[in-house]
Design a protein around this nucleic acid. Sequence first.
DNA 1: CCGTATCCGTTATGATACTG
DNA 2: CAGTATCATAACGGATACGG
Lengths: 123, 123
Amino acid sequence: MPAKRATSYACPIRDVLDRVGDAWSVLVIMELAGGPCRFNALQRVVNGISARMLSVTLRHLERDGLVSRRVLETSPPQVEYALTTTGASLHRAMGELAAWAETNQPAIREARAAYDASLEAAQ
Amino acid sequence: MPAKRATSYACPIRDVLDRVGDAWSVLVIMELAGGPCRFNALQRVVNGISARMLSVTLRHLERDGLVSRRVLETSPPQVEYALTTTGASLHRAMGELAAWAETNQPAIREARAAYDASLEAAQ
DNA sequence: CCGTATCCGTTATGATACTG
DNA sequence: CAGTATCATAACGGATACGG
């Protein structure tokens, strides 16, 4: 059994989740939901992403038909990325989960702290 | 900047997404949504997971307060895992995304095939 | 400006073997 | 049954440098 990213061997929604699970993909989709954006602009706004990972992430999203890539015939050339219709629908579908995440973040942090504390106490 | 799992350095919902993004976590939550389950039973039903990864995944979920762990005083001892209230609410929140995944899986597969084909054609 | 290729350390994962 | 320890390996991620 290959590593984590070995695309789904049974569960059908798995390869979709794999894409969503990718840390950067979510952030990029979030940004593009606000409107089309160019490569360097994206890199500036997506906190901490390297050019390499942005490139890789965009290629994945493009391959899955979630993001479109358009080269502008300017000088110097610019490339504009945007959510496709499918990509936009994914962004909407993530809404409920994002809301849950924000609502429950405090509870999760507390649970972690409590868990870690009980471990230390046990020693 | 450390690796992928370096818990969020800006985006607040990131550490929640990191958990959801973990391939196994989602599958385990899905299974537990059907009711409490023991360790080996889980391993049998979660396709392809190793004992080690199941152990690691369960500890993460437990630490985040999403899963509870109860030791039954039987012989041989059994351990029952179950979704907590928070865990169950996460499962519900994943519902919309899961539905999206199932609906759009064909489209994504097609997009991938088309993308790969156009790449080969370009050579 | 928009990438991609390479190098290379860090982390994740599976297999195996062993304990309570 | 329910794990954990150790080890080898593969994937991931950042930095750098170069090309379109």
